[in-house]
Design a protein around this nucleic acid. Structure first.
Lengths: 353, 353
DNA sequence: TTGAAAGCGCTAACAA
DNA sequence: TTGTTAGCGCTTTCAA
């Protein structure tokens, strides 16, 4: 109590001095002493509180509160071999993705969902080779309990590692290549694309082009959906491929489409950003939207409401994608069964089509 | 060498069995054994390599490589009391900020800069009270070596903690309130606003309005710069306040401005997003930009190039802001002196003004 | 320049 | 239900 621990125990056994010098908080021993129980009991209440008498429980809880105790994660991890952290890795030149409003909501929702489980999100980029190496070492080193993989590229050694089960992982969108050993969560891209294409057809549009992006997650499915509905009307010259989901790529693609097929009367862009670029190009070319040409997007991201005219688009339930990714990952970490999930999309009608 | 450690040492001293059961990587002892040196020597080469003979150094390096050893951060942290991680905390209802393209580049650049120092970035949101609590506990618990504070709000208990030096911290933009005990990195907002306002004046604009956002980081300075240049010409009815840097707020503000001052011939918006909203509203109102009214933004974010017409704006060197934040934080962590930094802005002329 | 040994704070197995 | 104890893998004195 009023005893001075330093004076009483000048021996190395006295932990107090060193700790205080380090300006660290109270340890489990401090709590135990104050609560008048053993360290083991404190540990038990900290984890689940099984086999603890109500009296002990109360005493410990009080002691925790009055000391302001927080567990030392490092010490805990050292023994449990769990870090209580997961990596959120962007396995693609990130500039592109960081530009995408979808990415932000994914990141935000994942962070939130993890926080509810007291798990930290560690953001890692994989753009340069050096970064790739670092991520690989980090994951292999067991620094995280799991990985949220954002834009999986099948050539990535990390993807190979994860497919081999080095550490639990969940991808956003079906990872390319045969490595679909990694479970994933995604929107029903194919069906979404069908919804949009059907909508365009129902509007009486005859020459419906597509700005596709088959290299990027979700891209192949969206192109397939378009083709499913149009069949032979999906003329080769009506679909142009871009290498990413950017505004600039959308504008360039639209220009090409206009040059190849001046009689085009509708365009389905594989993402809202692409559609926004197309819109800009159409205005430049003097075509009215939707009067001359209708434009459909995909995502229902923020920009869909900010373009002129606002975009008719396919809503992807990204908040749910994020929540489900976290849910699946946590199950995997707990070694519970969990598998890929596909979430439904929805047509959102605005003014562009 | 070819000895089987398990067979040779059936005693508890044999760490091999337990480790292997856990599917963990090699430990420092494995490296030491393979290199034929003691654990202490391995540790020395791992950290700085002082007082190590060239022979030992080489042997250890080889052993590290062949075993694929990675240090166990938890074990290291337990003794060094350093986590090698910093928190990136968003101390504001995040939806707003996540919507802001500036935020993305800040996050990306900070992650990159930290990765170069092998430090992880832990993303934390502070929107709900529960989250606020969690962040506070986390930081106080010593889980991170430092904090990058994104949108400091003076009422925040975390800000108070950080100002008291609980853990090193750097803010982005001057933290509101008297808590400027926290060093910060920011653009020269005031001067930037002056540049834009002078530009508008030089264009012969007579009635120059402003869409200001004095509640948010950088906002007060930008408003001051506008007033510095305009003096008494900064009529009350020419400046409207918004509560955030969003597209919607920009549109609403522009509507108000148009209603109050139909003769307005220029607008300086405190952010590009705000300017984009204003542009949309102007088009709706049938005003041509820049012919009827010139529009100036602030940030030079991605959208400045995507609006119609592209925005004339003030470039904020966000990549450098991020790099400097990390630099200052690392100095602080190393207990080196470091103080706030202000970075120069630049006028970028496009078509809107 | 090196090795031995003492912990860092915690969990988990075991005995009581 | 509880206390005791043996490590988790590492850094860091301290001697040698």
């Amino acid at each position: 109590m009023s005893q001075n621990a330093d004076a009483a125990q000048p021996h190395p056994k006295s932990r107090g001095a060193a700790r205080r010098a380090m300006r660290r908080g109270p340890t489990i021993d401090d709590v135990a002493e104050l609560a008048g129980v053993s360290r083991g009991t404190v540990s038990r209440v900290l984890n689940g509180a099984r086999y603890v008498s109500p009296a002990a429980l109360k005493a410990v809880e009080r002691a925790v509160r009055t000391t302001g105790y927080t567990v030392n994660q490092s010490a805990r991890s050292l023994v449990t071999k769990q870090s209580n952290a997961v990596a959120f890795v962007l396995s693609e030149p990130q500039e592109r993705l960081f530009e995408d409003p979808n990415f932000s909501v994914l990141l935000r929702c994942c962070t939130q969902a993890l926080a509810e489980h007291d798990i930290s999100l560690i953001l890692m980029l994989e753009s340069s080779d050096a970064e790739r190496d670092r991520v690989l070492r980090y994951v292999r080193g067991g620094h995280v309990d799991g990985v949220l993989l954002i834009s999986a590229h099948s050539g990535d050694p990390l993807v190979a590692d994860l497919a081999r089960g080095v550490v639990p992982a969940v991808a956003c969108g079906r990872p390319g290549g045969p490595e679909s050993a990694i479970p994933y969560v995604a929107a029903e891209d194919t069906e979404g694309a069908r919804q949009m294409t059907r909508h365009l057809v129902a509007q009486g549009r005859r020459r419906i082009g597509m700005i596709a992006c088959p290299q990027v997650v979700g891209g192949p499915e969206r192109l397939r959906g378009y083709r499913d509905v149009l069949g032979r009307r999906a003329l080769k010259r009506l679909v142009v491929h871009t290498s990413d989901y950017s505004f600039a790529a959308g504008a360039a693609a639209m220009r090409e489409l206009l040059a190849e097929s001046p009689d085009i009367d509708a365009v389905f862009a594989a993402s809202d950003l692409l559609a926004a670029g197309a819109l800009a190009e159409l205005r430049r070319a003097g075509r009215r939207v939707p009067d001359d040409v209708a434009v459909g997007g995909f995502d229902d991201s923020r920009i869909a409401r900010e373009t002129d005219p606002p975009l008719t688009t396919i809503r992807q339930p990204l908040e749910r994608v994020a929540a489900d990714m976290v849910d699946v990952l946590l199950r995997l970490i707990r070694r519970e069964p969990a598998s890929s999930r596909l979430l439904p999309t929805e047509l959102v009608r605005r003014e562009s089509a």
